[in-house]
């Protein structure tokens, strides 16, 4: 009933000879106001907790340690001149590149292996292979830490069984870097696996059948059918993983805390140590901000890949 009177009320001005589009225009405007209001919490989160902190970070990074004086880009130049920070840059890139290549290769192999399995058993195996990715890294890295323990290392015990000497897993710079990359790979490979698996499943069987009839061998099918079809998803996954690995914190923080002699520090852990633990907030902010240019490049590349994929309608 209330509805009915609303109609009547709405109709009166419309028939009273006003410009016809008036009410519907107003409705459209009300609609976009409503839409804006519904997106407002999102806007608040992005503006208040991403954009504002970003500019605040820039401001912070240009102050002196006690945050009393504007020092321009001194913090940045200071960092660039420091050997530790040069190590951080080198290590971040090294870890990101090697770990991502390892993850991508393992993920690719596992996806293919899973794809080759009969559908019945696939789910079970996939479930087991996803475990590293499901456990919070801050928690699983504790187990790795314990496995690498200098006196009680279960790995070293196994090596001793084969007569190999104890490995200083976290005590030696080279081994510590290897350990960090290993744990990173262990944690991230399942993600690649499921992304590739989804991509593999989306390649139509007819393409393989057509290729088989055209005389393609297994390798040729991979080269000319699978890889081109997966190219986009591979690049998106790789770029995304580069960001995550590059900006990693949990694994290094727990496993080595940057040691030995800062040989495993990443931007994240170094910023934490400088900014939070040593209390030099501006310098810490500057360390973090150094990540930004590289992240921005990756982000733009990912966005391009995603947009292209959307356009292709896949």
């Amino acid at each position: 009933m209330a509805d009915g009177s609303a109609i009547a009320a709405g109709r009166v001005p419309a028939t009273a000879g006003q410009p016809r589009t008036g009410t519907l225009k107003r409705m459209a405007r009300r609609r976009s106001t409503l839409a804006f209001l519904m997106a407002l919490p999102l806007l608040a989160v992005i503006a208040g907790l991403v954009i504002y902190p970003f500019f605040y970070a820039i401001e912070l990074s240009m102050l002196n340690k006690r945050m009393t004086r504007f020092v321009g880009i001194d913090n940045f130049t200071f960092l660039l001149g420091r050997e530790t920070f040069q190590l951080v840059i080198f290590q971040s890139v090294l870890f990101a590149v090697t770990a991502v290549i390892a993850k991508a290769l393992i993920g690719f192999v596992l996806a293919h292996v899973l794809h080759a399995l009969p559908a019945k058993g696939q789910r079970k195996w996939r479930g087991m292979l996803l475990v590293p990715w499901v456990i919070p890294p801050a928690v699983s890295t504790l187990a790795w830490w314990w496995l690498f323990d200098p006196s009680y290392s279960a790995f070293n015990w196994m090596l001793a069984v084969f007569g190999a000497g104890p490995v200083p897993w976290l005590g030696d710079a080279g081994w510590a870097r290897f350990a960090v990359i290993l744990v990173n790979t262990w944690y991230g490979a399942p993600f690649f696996m499921i992304m590739y698996l989804a991509a593999l499943k989306s390649v139509p069987d007819q393409l393989y059948e057509a290729a088989a009839i055209d005389g393609a061998t297994g390798i040729q099918k991979l080269r000319y059918v699978t890889l081109p079809m997966m190219r986009n998803i591979i690049s998106i996954t790789v770029l995304f993983s580069l960001i995550v690995t590059f900006a990693n914190f949990d694994i290094v923080r727990i496993l080595t805390n940057g040691g030995p002699q800062d040989r495993t520090h990443l931007f994240g852990t170094y910023a934490f140590q400088v900014g939070i633990q040593s209390g030099d907030i501006p310098l810490g902010a500057a360390v973090s901000l150094f990540m930004f240019p590289l992240l921005a490049v990756f982000a733009v590349l990912i966005l391009r890949g995603v947009n292209q994929r959307t356009k292709e309608g896949l």
């Binding site: 709405g10 109709r11 419309a14 028939t15 016809r20 589009t21 008036g22 009410t23 519907l24 459209a28």
Partner: peptide, 17 residues
């Protein structure tokens, strides 16, 4: 939306309804 003109259903104009 109609750009111009009138639509009536059952004798009443519904352009803006």
């Amino acid at each position: 939306e109609i750009t111009s003109g009138d639509i009536a259903i059952g004798g009443s104009i519904v352009n803006d309804i």
